[in-house]
Simulated assay, not measured.
Amino acid sequence: MKRALVLAASIVALAAVAITYAVLAASDPSPAGAALDTTRSGQLLFLDAGGRVAAVPSDDPGAARTVGDLNCRRFHSSGGTAVCLAAGVRGGLPRTSALILDSELRETNRLNLAGVPSRARVSPSGRMVAWTVFVTGESYNATGFSTWTGILDTRTGYPIVNIETIPLYIDGRRHHAPDVNFWGVTFAADDNRFYATVSTRGRTYLVEADYAKWEARTLRDNVECPSLSPDGTRLAFKKRVSPSAADPWRLHVLDLVTMRETPLAETASVDDQAQWLSDSEVAYARPGAAGGSDIWAVPADGSGSPRLLISAASSPSMPIRVDGP
C-alpha cells in the first residue's frame, strides 16, 4: 500500500511538471536545423546512430547518407511537418522537448514535457502531430509504466498534453478507470480520425478515435503501436504473442474491413511503431550491433522475408504531402 502511494505521488508530481513544461516557453536554445527538405520526393528520412536526422534515396537506401545537425530520440515527418522528440533532464527529472518543425527542419513550436521520449507521428497532411512519453518506466514490456500521449493541431496551435481525458468506450460501454494509458497514435488522411493503443486493467486494445467529437472506442484487443497504411485500409501493429520478456511481440497487419490479421514474415520481436514505405511494405527498427538498431523492411501481406534497409538507424519516415481537409 505504501509503495502504491509513493508511486501515485511520483506520477502526480511528474504530471505537474509535464503541464508546466508544456505551457512555458523553452529557455534553452533551439538546435540547428539540418540541411534537408522533408518534402523532397524519393527519400527516406531516419535517425542515425548518434540520433541525427539523415536521409537516403528511397530506391537506394545503401547509398551515402545526408546527415544534418538536428538531434532527436524519436522523429517523424509527413506533409511538410516534422516532429523531433529530444531527451534531457531538468530538476533531476527526465524531460522531453517535442520540437515541431517545418519542411526544412526549422523549429516552429516547442512543447517541453516531463518523461522519456517513446513515439512520434505526423498526419499525412502535416497538420496533426502526436507524441508519447514514458512518465514512469521506459519499456512497454515492463509492469507499472505510465505514458502520456499528446496531440497538437498545427493549424490552431492548440496542444492536448495528455489525451487520457478522452471519453473511452470499451465494448460499447463508457469506461472509467485510473490506470488508463494511451500510446502510439496514427492519423487518418482526414486529420480527424486516429488510432492508438490503450491499456487498462491489464489488457491492451486498439482504439479508433474522433478528434472533433473527442471520443474513442475499442475495436479489438492485443494491438500495440498501430500504423495506418497509405490507402487507409490496414494497420501494421505489434501483437503480444509471448509472456517472455525476451521475445514478446510479432508484427502483424490488420485489415480494417474484415478485421482479419496477418502475421508478417519478420519473426524477431519488434518493439517499434512501423512505418509504411508503400501500400505493400513496412519498415521498422530492431536491435542491431553494439546496443544500437537497424532499419528493416518486410512485405505487408505476410509473404517474403525481412530485408536490411539501413544499418545503424532508427525512426524511419517516408515524407509525403497530402492535402488535408
Rank of each mutant, 00 (worst) to 15 (best):
A209H: 01
G291V: 11
R173W: 09
L44E: 01
L24D: 07
S30G: 06
T156K: 10
L309T: 02
R240H: 07
G324W: 03
R52T: 09
I11G: 02
T38V: 14
Y169E: 13
L93F: 13
R250D: 11
F237C: 01
V17E: 06
G62W: 09
R3Q: 15
L93Y: 08
L7K: 15
T39E: 13
S103N: 14
G292F: 04
C84I: 04
A18E: 12
T262E: 09
A22V: 06
T200W: 04
G232K: 04
L113D: 00
L111H: 03
A189R: 13
A290F: 13
I100C: 03
A189L: 05
G291W: 09
T147V: 12
Y205L: 03
G144H: 11
I19S: 10
T154K: 02
S118G: 09
D323E: 15
C225Q: 12
P159V: 08
P248N: 10
E224A: 13
I170R: 14
P248R: 07
D272W: 02
S78K: 02
R40W: 02
R203P: 00
G184T: 05
I163P: 00
N181G: 05
S77T: 12
S278H: 07
P325C: 11
S10W: 08
V198A: 10
P325A: 09
D102E: 10
D69N: 14
D179N: 14
A25D: 14
S103M: 05
G137W: 03
R155I: 11
E104N: 13
A32G: 15
E266I: 06
A9M: 12
F134K: 01
W148Q: 15
A120R: 00
T81C: 06
L308H: 11
T96E: 03
